[in-house]
């Protein structure tokens, strides 16, 4: 049967930084073709297609309804796959190969992560579930 795509409204202007991305404007409506846990969603708008940060999109039909998973305060063990230095105060600095606990997997691709007694945001893109093959 036909594939029904979910429509989302763009909530802030986004200027693309690479060829595979899509520039969108506040108020645009896009259809989401694929969602990745990294927070990049593949969208189409009229005849254009490309990746858009999920943080810039809200569901067209139910803007107030949260699609987020619940946090898991016990934490899920992950290994970092890249050195990362946060640019904002609430982001965590972690070297490659460290074990961290993922507490909240947010759709925008910035997960809440705990390392020892410190908690902060970390890019899902640089995390691999502990025990998963590379």
């Amino acid at each position: 049967g036909p594939i029904i795509l979910q429509s989302y409204r763009v909530i802030a202007d986004y200027e693309k930084n690479s060829k595979s991305e899509l520039s969108v404007k506040d108020g645009d409506v896009v259809d989401v073709v694929e969602k990745t846990e990294n927070g990049w969603w593949f969208c189409q708008m009229k005849n254009k297609r490309g990746w858009v940060p999920a943080a810039y999109l809200e569901p067209l039909d139910s803007p107030d309804e949260s699609e987020e998973q619940d946090p898991n305060y016990e934490g899920e063990l992950h290994i970092t796959t890249k050195d990362f230095t946060g640019e904002m105060e609430d982001e965590l600095d972690v070297k490659e190969g460290e074990t961290v606990e993922v507490i909240h997997k947010l759709l925008d691709g910035w997960w809440v992560v705990r390392r020892g007694s410190v908690t902060g945001y970390f890019p899902a893109m640089y995390l691999q579930k502990s025990g998963d093959a590379v």
Partner: peptide, 22 residues
């Protein structure tokens, strides 16, 4: 076919959006 997503983390939500989410 769908191209691979960008290899960098997506930007954090812009400040005006973050305010809306709170």
């Amino acid at each position: 076919t769908i191209k691979r997503p960008p290899q960098n983390p997506p930007p954090r939500p812009p400040p005006e959006v973050r305010r809306k989410q709170v």
